[in-house]
């Protein structure tokens, strides 16, 4: 079995609620109670107005590929034998952009386009551990 991917490490106060929610397969994001800004990556404060009053939401998991790259060479032990794999920024319909992988395709260099619609797919990392949000063609 390939070595584990780099995992989120805790304690890390800003992102811990996000990762806890992945154990329930919930992709979460925040909005500011004062100025309605969508906050992502997760933080305790609003990046637009500085308020510490915000609300967590669960995303529907639908969005589009903003951009991507197909990694042909990685020396990281978890990825080096994976073959070509796609890393992307996906823009969720709720207005936040996440780094992720695009999966469920044959050839990542030809089967992914910027703007392509995608939907959420979870990849569990181990018993009761966090799950990684990934995306596949919608």
């Amino acid at each position: 079995m390939a070595p584990l991917r780099p995992q989120p490490a805790f304690p890390e106060n800003d992102t811990q609620p996000f990762w806890d929610a992945t154990k329930k397969h919930e992709l979460t994001y925040q909005t500011c109670d004062r100025c309605n800004e969508v906050i992502f990556y997760p933080r305790r404060h609003c990046t637009s107005c500085g308020s510490d009053q915000n609300t967590w939401h669960v995303s529907q998991g639908l969005g589009s590929v903003y951009t991507f790259s197909v990694i042909m060479q990685s020396r990281h032990p978890a990825f080096k034998d994976l073959g070509a794999y796609a890393v992307a920024y996906v823009d969720l319909d709720e207005g936040f952009r996440i780094m992720t992988n695009i999966v469920g395709i044959q050839d990542p260099t030809t089967d992914i386009q910027c703007g392509m619609r995608v939907k959420l797919r979870w990849e569990d990392q181990g018993d009761g551990e966090v799950s990684l949000p990934m995306f596949e063609p919608a």
Partner: peptide
Amino acid sequence: SNLFRNMEDPWGLTLI
């Protein structure tokens, strides 16, 4: 740990 590492490292992006 920090938020950037937690929100970027698991998906295997290289610098290139």
